[in-house]
Structures are given as C-alpha cells and as structure tokens.
Simulated scan of single mutants.
Amino acid sequence: MSETPLLITWAQAAAPHALPLFLIALLTAVLAGGAACVGFQRRHAARTVEAEPRSPRMLLSLALGFSAIVVAAALFAWIAERATPMHTLGRADQWLADGIAATLPWGALRAFSVLTHFGDRAVLIALGVGVALALLWRRHTGLALGWAVALLGNAALNPMLKHLFERARPVHEHGLTVEDGYSFPSGHSSGSMVVYGMLLYLALQLLPPRWHAPAVMATIAVILTTACSRIFLQVHFASDVVAGLLSGGTWLLVCVSSVEYAQRRKRRKRRRVHR
C-alpha cells in the first residue's frame, strides 16, 4: 500500500520542476558518457593489442550483452503490465502529464516541438537511406546490411507493440504538434534509440578515436532530448517513453551483437586465407 501513493507523490513533486530536472539529467548523462568513452580508450591504449579478444573476455562480453537484453525485456514487460489507469504507474503517468501541461513555459514547449523532429519518421527514413548508400559506396557491405536490418526490424516491431497494447495517448491541446494512434511504446523513443545508437556504432567503427567521445556525447544528447520531448509535448506518457527506449535498446543490442559476431567471423576467415 505504501508504494501506491509514493509514485504519485513523486510525479506530483517532479512535474513543476520537470524542465530543470531534465536539463540536469541530460548534462549528467552526456558528461558521464564522454568520460566513460575517454576512460575506455585510455585503458584500451594501455593494454597490449591483441589480434583477437581472448575467449574468457569474449564470453564475458556475450554474457553481459545477453544479461542486458534479458533485463531490458523484463523491465519492458513490468512497465507494460502496470501502465494502465488501474495501476499506480498509469495514475502517476497522468499526474505527471497534467502537471507538465499546467506548468511548462510556452517557450520550452515550442523548443521541444522543434527538437522532437529528430525522431520523425521522415527524418529517420532519410537518414537510414543516406547512411546505407554511403556504406555501400564505401564497400562496407556487412555494416550496411546490419544497419538496414536494425532500422527495418524496429520499424516493424514498434507498430506491432502499439497494436498489442492499444494505449490511448494523453490529451495534448497546445496545437504545436498533433499525434494520433496508440501511445505505448513511444515510436520516437525506440526509433531514435535504434537509428542514432546504430549510427554511433558505425562512428566507433569507422571514425578516428579522437571523434569517439564527441560522438558518444552527441548521441546521448539526441536520444534523450528526442525521447523526453514526447513527454514535454504531452503526446506520450513517461512510461511510453521509457518502454520505447527499452524496446529500442533491446533490439539495438541484438543487432550490434549480431554485426560484431559477423565482423569477427569475417576477420578470422581473412587471416586464414593469408596464412
């Protein structure tokens, strides 16, 4: 019984301060991502370069990746079960949406109505086609295939999930953006996670190391801003956005792991040929 009022109390307390809380969280995440990338690069440079990761290390990476997928899927299922008006999470969602609608400054609302376009379907499709053509032109066939599968897979997965749960959107009457269709999970959130997450993976594969930290920081900023813009615009509940990030992140991990596995097999075959 103590859990029920606690979530709603947090939502009521957070709503008037949602914008500064978002900015603090965004800055923290961006700086933490950049610092983590730099730290990883330094540790990697300090180690002796190996032709191929040792088996225990590779198995540990696979185990961690699989664990992350399982945890993300479990969290998604937990949110999906409770994101209804009859449950605490659903009521907290409504309190937060109503509080943001009543307190968010008009200028911030207009800014988010522009920033949200990073996750628009037309933008993601154009980016998907452009990157695929660039990869093919540079003869990165395997990466181009992985990129296409990631984007097309998420484009099919998100509508299926929406029709499975059929959650209505929150009321949004500001007129800056109008969305129809189902709400759970957020397509902008999952699409941004997959497209910009895969773009980061490609950047880490193809760009010089000096660009890795800026790429990580920019990716975090774009994904979080796009996802949270849906909450501030009141076209999605907060749980829709979290679920979209989880579903997109799970699919992203599957795709990146598959591409990494294929790339390693390709490198092994090349070494065998040259022996």
Rank of each mutant, 00 (worst) to 15 (best):
M1F: 06
S2F: 10
T4P: 05
P5M: 07
L6T: 10
I8K: 12
I8A: 07
A11S: 13
Q12C: 00
P16A: 09
F22S: 00
L23E: 10
L23A: 10
I24P: 00
I24Q: 01
A25P: 03
L26Q: 08
L26N: 08
A29E: 01
V30Y: 04
G34L: 05
V38T: 13
G39S: 09
F40Y: 12
F40A: 07
H44V: 04
A46H: 11
T48R: 14
A51G: 14
E52K: 08
P53A: 06
M58Q: 15
M58A: 15
L59S: 11
L59Q: 14
L60I: 12
S61N: 09
L62D: 07
L64A: 15
L64V: 15
G65C: 10
F66P: 00
V70P: 04
A73W: 10
A73P: 02
A73C: 11
A77H: 05
W78P: 01
W78M: 12
A80C: 09
A80N: 07
A83H: 03
T84G: 07
L89H: 06
A92F: 07
W95V: 15
A97N: 14
D98R: 14
I100W: 09
A101V: 03
T103W: 01
P105N: 10
A108L: 00
A108R: 02
A108Q: 09
L109I: 04
F118Y: 13
D120Q: 02
R121Y: 01
V123M: 12
L124P: 01
A126M: 11
G130W: 09
G130N: 05
L133Q: 02
L133W: 07
A134K: 11
H140G: 01
H140C: 05
L143V: 03
L143W: 08
A144E: 05
L151Y: 08
L151K: 06
L151A: 11
N154S: 06
A155T: 14
A155G: 10
A155H: 06
A156H: 07
N158V: 15
K162C: 04
K162F: 07
F165Q: 04
R169E: 03
P170S: 08
P170E: 03
H174T: 13
L176Q: 05
E179I: 08
G181P: 02
G181M: 10
S186G: 04
G187K: 03
S189Y: 09
S190E: 02
G191D: 02
S192K: 01
M193V: 11
M193E: 05
V194R: 06
Y196H: 06
M198L: 11
M198K: 12
L199P: 00
Y201T: 00
Y201A: 09
L204M: 11
P209Q: 09
R210A: 12
W211E: 00
H212C: 06
V216T: 12
I220R: 05
A221R: 08
V222H: 06
L224W: 08
C228M: 15
C228Q: 14
C228T: 11
R230Y: 10
A238F: 13
A238L: 15
D240S: 09
G244I: 08
G248Q: 05
G248L: 03
G249C: 02
V254W: 06
C255Y: 03
C255K: 03
C255V: 12
V256C: 04
V256A: 01
V256P: 03
S257L: 08
V259P: 00
Y261G: 03
A262M: 09
Q263W: 02
R267M: 11
R272I: 06
V273I: 15
V273W: 07
R275G: 14
